[in-house]
């Protein structure tokens, strides 16, 4: 059997990965959990990967709704891949999978940094894998996307729709210093980003003139007819659609000092 490592973890990013020991079956750590044959009290022996909410759980008991139908016994140890379920005085999670702990899991359980950092790195890896272009450079300008040429499609059309969730698109011009992934013919690359601070968009990177960094860019098709400020981006004669680079995830912009780490993570 092959050694289990972090890269073997299932896609879909469960919230928490931990090693735990089953203490009690058909039980729960708080009264708000609907108890069934599949709920168990589990002591967390080691948190392997988790968001901040779960990082403190080592040594504590929590409730696990077990995955699948296989019988488990008190005292057995598992690697649980779980998502959050109920938070009250205690915590209940739902296991996506649980694997009996074997020697093959040693690599997974070896100290590899803080559980929160592990999770963050995996999310970054996912963004890098999906990226079309990863560059280092400096933001030379941030502009409102150009208006349509008078007489062309969309020119003079009224703003619509008006919503508090409007992304308020802006265009950042990045002068490229190094290209780490993908191909780009020019020394400049234009990136669309939402300037809106609405709940929908606040986590997206907000580019600033003079900002130096590593930028993880994704080709995105946008229906320019549906965005009053993007109508000028549609190629002449095209049916209101433009392919642009965007950076919408917090993991899409990094300070330049991260360059070496990110280069290392990029898979050919």
């Amino acid at each position: 059997m092959a050694t289990k490592t972090r890269s073997d973890l299932p896609e879909g990013s469960p919230a928490i990965i931990f090693k735990g020991t089953v203490k009690k079956i058909k039980s729960a750590t708080m009264k708000e959990v609907p108890i069934s044959d599949r709920t168990a009290v589990v002591r967390v022996d080691q948190v392997i990967e988790a968001p901040r909410t779960f990082a403190h759980c080592g040594g504590q008991d929590l409730t696990v709704e077990l995955a699948g139908k296989k019988k488990v016994s008190v005292g057995e140890q598992f690697i649980f891949h779980a998502n959050s379920w109920i938070f009250g005085d205690s915590v209940a999670v739902r296991a996506v999978t649980q694997e009996r702990v074997t020697k093959e899991h040693l690599a997974l359980m070896s100290p590899g940094g803080e559980p929160t950092e592990q999770r963050k790195n995996r999310q970054l890896q996912k963004r890098l894998n999906a990226a079309d272009l990863v560059v280092s450079g400096k933001v030379a300008a941030v502009t409102i996307p150009p208006e349509p040429v008078p007489g062309t499609r969309g020119a003079g059309a009224p703003r619509k729709p008006v919503s508090e969730h409007d992304p308020k698109w802006r265009q950042a011009v990045i002068v490229v210093d190094q290209t780490h992934k993908g191909k780009h013919d020019s020394k400049q690359v234009k990136v669309l980003f939402p300037a809106s601070t609405d709940v929908r968009w606040y986590k997206a990177p907000k580019f600033q003139v003079g900002q130096k960094g590593v930028f993880v860019l994704h080709k995105t098709k946008i229906k320019t007819d549906e965005h009053h400020e993007l109508r000028g981006l549609a190629p002449r004669g095209a049916a209101g659609e433009a392919e642009v680079y965007t950076a919408l995830d917090p993991a899409d912009a990094h300070p330049l000092k991260q360059q070496a780490v990110i280069k290392e993570m990029i898979r050919p």
Partner: peptide, 18 residues
């Protein structure tokens, strides 16, 4: 509320009182 899932999963939460 605009409370996210504390585990960062594919479900958003509601508050429940009984």
């Amino acid at each position: 509320a605009f409370t996210p899932d504390p585990g960062g999963g594919n479900l958003a939460p509601i508050f429940v009182s009984v």
